[in-house]
């Protein structure tokens, strides 16, 4: 196939494209509903049971009209953004994350849990199906960071910072992309899936060692939140890069599969 007179390559198979977009949907829903769930008890403790002495993050409202965020004991005033926020009912009140970014867009823990527990299945199945299929087909090999890629990481960064004219020689994905994909697929995704599993219905009773491995129930909640935050970080950088590095070509390739090399 030719796009703009040049030879395009079929970069993404159907399963990759379908799971990518389904994952985007699940990711957005899981974050919104996860923040809804967080709002019901807006503390994260590095312990098994709730323990104020081991509190890492607390979002609260010490007085009407004031929102605060306390991280490792340091308190910041975050009125309007965190702690004292839009409640989705036309008022501001004591809610950790604001209603426009939680699902549903007002306080409803029961509904938030239902969204979260449904889409966690979608996200986990997508991740596993894509991982297994990519491992079998071999295209996973192109994405995994290898020891030989490590010396190329800085030259690639230097190229992005315009300190170097040419990127180091690489395959379909450059060494920084490989590092990002490897971290997401093999560190962050397993982290959120396993901590989510430890918090899932009925799992603690049949697999308590999983909860213990993350430091207990509240600690698993903390890791789950940290994993989410890092995935959001990847999502922001990834979306920014797609938006600034030939957005039409990038979007076309993830929709139709055809990518136009430069």
């Amino acid at each position: 196939m030719k796009v703009a007179g040049r030879q395009a390559i079929y970069r993404y198979p159907l399963l990759t494209r379908a799971s990518h977009w389904l994952w985007v949907l699940a990711f957005v829903v899981l974050i919104g509903s996860g923040l809804q769930i967080f709002n019901a008890s807006p503390n994260l403790d590095a312990s098994d049971k709730s323990d104020a002495a081991r509190r890492v993050l607390a979002i609260g409202s010490p007085a009407d009209g004031v929102g605060t965020t306390t991280l490792f004991g340091h308190t910041f005033v975050t009125t309007g953004w965190l702690g004292w926020t839009d409640d989705g009912m036309g008022e501001k009140s004591a809610h950790a994350f604001p209603a426009p970014i939680i699902i549903p867009g007002y306080q409803d823990l029961a509904a938030g849990r239902r969204w979260h527990l449904f889409f966690s299945w979608i996200a986990a199945i997508c991740w596993l199906a894509w991982l297994i299929s990519s491992a079998i087909k071999g295209n996973l090999r192109e994405m995994v960071l290898r020891p030989s890629d490590v010396p190329k990481l800085w030259p690639m960064q230097a190229y992005y910072l315009k300190l170097r004219k040419q990127p180091p020689p690489h395959g379909i994905y450059n060494p920084l992309q490989k590092a990002a994909y490897t971290t997401v697929l093999f560190v962050l995704a397993p982290l959120v899936v396993l901590t989510g599993l430890a918090l899932s219905p009925g799992i603690d009773a049949i697999a308590n060692p999983l909860t213990v491995a993350f430091g207990g129930r509240q600690f698993a909640r903390l890791w789950h939140f940290v994993g989410m935050g890092l995935l959001v970080g990847f999502f922001v950088i990834h979306t920014f890069q797609v938006a600034t590095q030939g957005v039409v070509n990038q979007m076309r390739s993830m929709i139709s599969g055809w990518y136009q090399p430069e």
């Binding site: 957005v28 829903v29 919104g32 426009p100 970014i101 939680i102 699902i103 867009g105």
Partner: peptide, 13 residues
């Protein structure tokens, strides 16, 4: 897009 999550979620819910 971020601020649309809540209202869209509410409508679907």
């Amino acid at each position: 897009a971020l601020a649309g999550c809540g209202p869209i979620g509410s409508a679907l819910n």
